[in-house]
Amino acid sequence: MGPVELLHMSVFSQSFSPCGRYLAAGNNYGEIAVFSLSAALSPDASERSQKPILNFTAHDGPVFSLLSTESHLLSAGNGEISAWSWAELIKKSTKAAWTRKPNYETSLEIPEINAMIINPKDNNLIVGGGDNNIHIMDMETGTFKSVLKGHTDYIHCLSFKEREGEILSGGEDGAVRIWDSRTNRPVHCIEVFKYEECARPQFGKWISCLATDSDWMLCGGGPSLSLWHLRSMSPTSVFPLSGCQREAVSYQDLIMSVGEGPYVSHCLHGGTVKAQIPCSPSSLNTLALNLKNTEHRVMTVGGSSHQIDVFTNFSYRALSLSF
């Protein structure tokens, strides 16, 4: 890969392996790189261990979403989802286990896939993207069994509430829609941009990040990042972050958020920004926490750079992995 490609690279998605020892990252050239965290974090790590152990082209378009199941890595490209076995990836073999396409209404246009999540209860894969619809795939048979229609513009992000079995989706139309996964019917629709406290008309109304934690929901994008109480459907805290946020995660008593600007913001539920930790990319797209493995409990962030920053302690950058 040449220096120009490296300069213009953006990392859009990340996923940790089920064992927690490897990290997969997808970029705007459709490549997936697999990094070994155990090598990069070992005491005798060298420059070489911060490079991927495997780098392969998975899709034609950018890889907007990566997801790990018990045994496979799922990657979403332009209109298709591929699965790669982690065991095979670690052995450096890059043959897709399967590739599926959601049932799109028109065959003329190939919509991108922006978000994928797993519904562990029913073993479903929930896919949202450029065709404004949410597609639900049965992981057992690999068939797309239902479509949730409601959004009027493309879908940016998805979240799943396990206890209630609810799917949340946020999109370019500025709405957060809540669906019942049992009946596949819409339950609620929150139009975040209509609430004065979080609206930012100068940025637009799109919702690009969505996260849930029991009765609480985090959402942001064009409107300010805000914490919502879902039972009362009201915004409780609005975080004073200047840029548009791309991904937010709630971890223990902290909310970690990334977006425009070269830093990870640590927020408290009360609505205060506790800290902003500097990182190497100038703008961040993705944040992932590795909680599966206690030995390599790290946070990784990626953005408009070929580097992926690794935080062993959440309050400072430890090292950077590089494509």
Binding site: W216, H229, T236, S237, Q252, D253, L268, H269, G270
Partner: peptide, 20 residues
Amino acid sequence: IQRAKRIRKNRQEYDALARV
């Protein structure tokens, strides 16, 4: 510390709800 964090989170959630 885990417990304290949990408590802090709950308190903050309480505060946020109280505001509403």
